[in-house]
Design a binder for these strands. Structure first.
Lengths: 132, 132
DNA sequence: GCTTGAACCTCTAGTTACTAGAGCTTGTAT
DNA sequence: ATACAAGCTCTAGTAACTAGAGGTTCAAGC
């Protein structure tokens, strides 16, 4: 199976300029070209793009994905390096969740303090002005 | 009290280039200048920068902060517009938390599936290759 | 074989919220 | 008077794309 960039785009739900961008930064190998200079992709490249998109959906950065791809390509890697990348990322995600929960609480407090007292000005601005 | 940009920076914990950047995009008014063209700030501007930093710490975007500042400056605003901005932001934050929790689960599943079976290759890469 | 139009090409610039560096000038303390 | 920290402007870089201009190629229908 050979894909044009548009077909690959449909297959992987990845926008055409994004595919070109991935090639540009070396995340995807340079595609073969048709006689008229248009990109042609193999099933393998299609699978790699699926891998990239799936990883992105899980929040891995392009840099992390580069590492994961390298681990895939290099046969002699330690069995647990990919595991480490994933675990590191999991820690990041948990950190972000904690931060956002704190934030959620602060916003709630701010908004609630305002609901109590409908007759006055909204206190949101006031509370943002307080030096914490 | 009159501040140089460095003093303002210390006072607000906001880096010097960031202050200049806020001026450039119109989030802070243009500062007065000394005879030698250096920026001089008043206590009012210092308070405004505190407001901006506090809002940023709560995750408001610069655009949202612009709206909030406009609401402060404009005396004739609806008492609850700031409330709305905050509530909208709260919804965003909650959304992000939900997404990250889903992600956390997927990562956990991936990593755990690998721990079960230590003798084989790490399954992280394999599971990223599966088309979900 | 010719025409049409969708899909392709490259290149540049924009997005968000800053950060870093070059090369020069000003302020202040001794 | 001098030294040097702190200031100035301008340009470019970060992450991960997205959008548009202006031109070319492919594939289908006649």
């Amino acid at each position: 199976m050979v894909y044009s960039i548009g077909q690959l785009s449909k297959e992987t739900q990845c926008k055409v300029p994004t595919i070109r961008y991935y090639e540009e930064i070396g995340l995807l190998d340079k595609a073969q070209r048709s006689a008229g200079n248009q990109r042609r992709y193999t099933s393998q490249q299609c699978q790699r793009l699926h891998f990239i998109r799936h990883s992105r959906a899980l929040g891995f950065s392009l840099d992390e994905i580069k590492q994961l791809i390298h681990l895939q390509d290099c046969q002699h890697h330690d069995a647990h390096q990919a595991h480490d990348v994933a675990q590191h990322h999991l820690a990041d995600v948990r950190n972000k969740i904690e931060q956002l929960k704190t934030l959620e609480q602060q916003l709630l407090t701010m908004i609630d303090s305002c609901d109590v007292d409908e007759t006055e000005d909204c206190l949101v601005l006031k509370s943002l002005n307080e030096v914490s």
